[in-house]
Simulated assay, not measured.
Amino acid sequence: MDSQTETEALRRILHCEWGADEQVDWTAVEAHLHTPLPADYRAFMAVYGGGCIDDLIILPPLPTGNGWQASITDDAAGFRELWSTEGGAPGVELGADRVLPWGSGCNANELGWLMTGPNPDQWPVVVWRRHGNPHWALFDCGMAEFLRRLMTAEFDECPLSDLSLWGRVGTFVHHEEQERRFHAGLDPMTGEPNPYAGMFD
């Protein structure tokens, strides 16, 4: 499927009730990152924004200013250092400057793109699995397709070293809604009363 079709397929299973248009200035993003970003990711930011699918953090491109949500910009150096220290994906000769993160979490998995050329819609997904062997793995699909196939168990095996979203559709919550719930004494992801609210302020 093309990126638009894959984005629509993801929307059919992942509800966007708690999403929000991140209102990204893509010209500023491209100037800051020195590259355009894939169309499915840009569509995701317009429908869902940055936030979490359960324990999987989806990064917005630039810092949000509220301190609650990390971003691609925030995480890029660490992701690239991990690529350098772990030797990258098997059979891939590209250096650390050719990877860019878009997600993190689910028991310390790191997700990003391998920037194989000038067309971002052709970039495959690359994942660092904390408990994987090898740690790095490459998937010939975009972000939206990867998320859909993860939650519908359409890979040969779970692509992460965590099964929490394998074959199960999670709930997306935008970072601003998470922060609002937290300050209201609610669990940021479920919206239920948080018995530990205020204990660590």
Results as ranks from 00 to 15, higher is better:
M199I: 13
G103L: 00
H34W: 08
N109D: 06
L160V: 04
M1P: 04
E22K: 12
G117C: 04
N194T: 14
W18V: 15
F139A: 11
D162F: 03
A46M: 08
D156Y: 01
C141V: 07
A46V: 11
G103H: 03
G91M: 12
P63L: 09
V99G: 02
N109T: 08
R180F: 07
V127N: 01
W18N: 13
C158F: 05
P120A: 15
I53Q: 01
G170N: 03
V47M: 10
L94F: 08
R129C: 10
R149W: 08
L82V: 10
E86C: 15
T7A: 13
P188T: 14
D25C: 11
P61D: 01
V99R: 03
E145V: 14
D201S: 11
T152M: 06
P101D: 02
G185E: 07
M1L: 15
G112R: 02
G51Y: 00
E86R: 15
L111F: 05
T171W: 10
I72M: 06
D140L: 11
F79P: 00
A77Q: 02
D187E: 14
E176P: 06
C106P: 01
V173E: 05
L114S: 03
T190M: 01
T64L: 10
S104K: 05
E22S: 14
L138W: 08
V92M: 08
M115T: 07
A43N: 10
V127T: 07
P101A: 09
V92R: 02
D54N: 15
G185R: 03
A31W: 02
G167W: 03
H175W: 09
C52E: 12
N107T: 15
M1R: 15
L82A: 11
